[in-house]
């Protein structure tokens, strides 16, 4: 089974999905991500799906599940780079991803997370993005 790598950039975890997702890899990703957020104390998760061409309802639900998991660790989730065909499929499947934020590309996704993080932490935490690491 292929595993999806999780990269840490500043206070953000980047999940870039470059493989054909199997249900097993999806479940593994959810576990890995939960551990990684808890370990790093990241304030945001970006899921880059610009390479994903085919989705089914299981993968569609994965986004919502990951968002709920992240929320428990007080981290925001942004899904970036969704292809038109994938968006149409998800709409046809009746999945609207509920509370998950979306952005056109990685750059904007990072920007959104930056703004959200600032809002949440207020002006106080300008120093030290990672209280736990510091």
């Amino acid at each position: 089974m292929e595993r999806v790598p999780i990269l840490k950039i500043g206070g953000v975890l980047l999940v870039s999905i470059q493989i054909d997702l199997q249900d097993q890899s999806v479940l593994a990703l959810q576990e890995d991500l939960a551990e990684k957020i808890s370990a790093t104390g990241a304030h945001g998760v970006v899921i880059d799906i610009s390479a994903v061409e085919i989705v089914d309802s299981f993968i569609g639900r994965m986004f919502a599940t990951i968002a709920s998991i992240s929320r428990l660790f007080d981290a925001d989730t942004v899904v970036v780079g969704m292809r038109p065909a994938v968006a149409i499929t998800l709409v046809e499947l009746g999945l609207t991803l509920g509370g998950v934020r979306t952005a056109l590309n990685l750059e904007r996704g990072m920007k959104i997370l930056g703004e959200l993080g600032r809002e949440r932490r207020g002006a106080v935490t300008h120093f030290g993005e990672f209280p736990r690491d510091a």
Binding site: V79, M82, P84, V91, T96, T102, L104
Partner: peptide, 10 residues
């Protein structure tokens, strides 16, 4: 549907 799909894409 178009509006929702666009929203999904950000």
């Amino acid at each position: 549907k178009t509006v929702v799909a666009a929203r999904l894409m950000g």
